[in-house]
């Protein structure tokens, strides 16, 4: 309960902070529109030369792009900002203030920042998913929706753990901002279902930089392509990565030397 209240408070602070800069909302809409143009323009060029991409139709890929926007929005709104702040804190030694608080420090550093305007990307993602499903005449029943939300949540947990592990490396290497660039450029690959890539890249995108579980798998759930094994695999990987991230964090903290050291 106490932790839920803390999340609420922390988000409220961030949102109040964001509301000061309302012009950013317009800028974000413009930026999202451009991203959308690239994603859909790319699809329309590809599908002007073929009617299916390794068994995926254009409308199905609209759903994939929808999930890509939705998850990308959540990552950019909730996960990435807190992680960037954590990197800066480790680098500058200001993590002291968080460590002194009488709550779990990993929890605290994970919920500190929210980029409200990334909501635009999440909304666009939902609209795209709706459009794609409508064009497929696919009906999603309650069970399927539940599976979708479950896989979505598992995917986010996996991405969160992945980010947490990357960020924790700052305890050893101090300056790792460049790692952000790696994740962002790899995330681009999520715009297409990972099965179209060569084997080693599929492996990389599934286990090393887990974009498959964040984007492709939830999209598969909506399109009725999900197998029970994948679902179990996602749950297993999420659990494994959460635990690993926790261990990483604890190890890393021992390396933290603080501001004055």
């Amino acid at each position: 309960m106490r932790y839920l209240r803390l999340i609420g408070l922390s988000f409220k602070m961030s949102i109040l902070n964001e509301l000061q800069y309302r012009a950013n909302f317009v800028v974000q809409i413009f930026q999202t529109a451009l991203e959308l143009l690239v994603a859909l323009g790319g699809l329309s060029i590809v599908y002007s030369h073929t009617s299916d991409l390794n068994g995926w139709s254009a409308s199905e890929l609209v759903v994939v792009v929808g999930v890509y926007f939705l998850i990308g929005g959540v990552i950019n709104m909730l996960i990435q900002p807190s992680m960037i702040r954590l990197m800066e804190d480790v680098h500058q030694g200001t993590l002291d203030f968080t460590l002194l608080k009488p709550v779990d420090a990993q929890f605290m550093v994970s919920v500190r920042e929210v980029r409200l305007w990334k909501l635009v990307n999440m909304i666009v993602g939902c609209v795209l998913i709706g459009v794609g499903l409508a064009r497929l005449n696919a009906s999603v029943d309650a069970g399927q929706a539940l599976v979708f939300l479950t896989v979505l949540a598992l995917g986010l947990l996996i991405v969160y753990s992945f980010w947490m592990m990357l960020t924790t490396c700052a305890f050893w290497f101090t300056r790792i901002e460049n790692i952000l660039v790696i994740f962002e450029s790899m995330y681009e690959a999520g715009r297409y279902p990972v099965r179209i890539y060569p084997g080693w890249l599929q492996f990389t995108l599934t286990f090393l930089v887990p974009i498959a579980f964040a984007v492709t798998v939830p999209a598969e759930a909506l399109l009725g392509r999900l197998t029970a094994e994948t679902l179990l695999g996602a749950a297993g990987l999420a659990a494994l990565m959460l635990i690993t991230a926790r261990l990483f964090w604890q190890r890393g903290l021992r390396h933290y030397s603080g501001a004055s050291a």
Binding site: V46, T50, L53, S185, R191, Y192, Y197, P198
Partner: peptide, 26 residues
């Protein structure tokens, strides 16, 4: 940064190559 440059150079062309190889494959 060299590693990051390599990765940045490679990822995007791989995406497009993979997509177009699939399209051409059919």
């Amino acid at each position: 940064a060299l590693i990051i440059w390599i990765q940045g150079l490679v990822v995007e062309p791989i995406i497009y190559m993979a997509v177009w190889t699939q399209v051409a494959g059919d």
